[in-house]
């Protein structure tokens, strides 16, 4: 190939081929698989499938179904966060520097990570729902679909969170920090225990934490309960904040070298 006939790849290097290879690598990572696919399903089986949960009605389904949606949200969160946080591991390993020696544009790299985060998020929700369906969770058909979609789409906020943290914390073990942090946020946001059981002060604070909105939105098709607009606002504001944080760190990272 001569000097003159060379050309740049399309879309800044964003490609299906890269996504496929990255997915293969992710599937090989036992920690990711356990965290994002097995944990949420196991939590659901532990906390959501007692006999009285199965008989207690919530909306058009049962309490087991309610817990299932919450756990699906939790799984999607873990999945998208770890997807975004991949940049941290790759920066720590110096891989980002290696990628600078290719035509891959930084924005195409970020886009690839977001797509990957959303793919594993979707798989996580699907696995949790499959386990739920055979373990006594009952939801109206519309809620199976809408709750699943919302749990997945709203987890985008955590893809942004993962990216932000991935650029903020250059560590190989970033998920060891973020895993517990997400568990705390899930408690604070009423994902494990409904916020009104935590006392009124806590319930008020909970509404401002990032998990609250996602949980409320995802369960809405089942419960038709709570303030939809407030929940949506929560998701939008946190997504914007985390995305801005990620952009800020990302720009610094790109400018440095």
């Amino acid at each position: 190939m001569t000097v003159m006939t060379r050309s740049l790849p399309r879309f800044g290097g964003f490609s299906l081929g890269m996504i496929k290879l990255e997915l293969r690598r992710l599937a090989r990572n036992k920690r990711t698989v356990i965290f994002t696919l097995i944990f949420p399903a196991a939590f659901f089986l532990l906390f959501g499938t007692s006999a009285d949960y199965k008989t207690e009605q919530v909306g058009g389904g049962n309490l087991t179904g309610y817990v299932l949606v919450s756990m699906a949200v939790y799984g999607a969160m873990l999945a998208t966060t770890s997807g975004g946080a991949m940049v941290s591991i790759e920066r720590a390993a110096g891989w980002s520097r290696q990628l600078r020696l290719t035509p891959l544009r930084p924005y195409a790299y970020i886009a690839t990570k977001i797509v990957l985060a959303m793919i594993i998020g979707a798989v996580s929700v699907a696995v949790a729902f499959a386990v739920g369906a055979v373990s006594g969770a009952q939801l109206p058909v519309s809620a199976w679909i809408l709750c699943g979609l919302l749990a997945w789409v709203c987890a985008l906020v955590f893809a942004a969170f993962g990216l932000f943290m991935g650029y903020l914390l250059p560590s190989e073990n970033v998920m060891q920090i973020l895993g517990p942090a997400l568990a705390v946020l899930s408690f604070a946001g009423g994902l494990f225990v409904p916020v009104d059981q935590l006392g009124s002060t806590f319930a008020t604070i909970a509404k401002f934490t990032p998990v609250y909105g996602v949980g409320e939105l995802a369960r809405y098709p089942l419960t038709h309960d709570g303030n939809l607009w407030l929940a949506a606002l929560n998701v939008i504001v946190w997504t914007a904040l985390f995305a801005a944080g990620a952009m800020w760190r990302f720009r610094r990272d790109t400018a440095r070298v």
């Binding site: 740049l8 690598r25 891989w95 020696l101």
Partner: peptide, 19 residues
């Protein structure tokens, strides 16, 4: 670099262990 006119084997060139 983007056009692939120049490439490098770096001293501490990073590789991902799980590929």
């Amino acid at each position: 670099v983007e056009l692939g006119l120049v490439s490098a084997v770096m001293q501490t060139g990073a590789l991902l262990k799980d590929y």
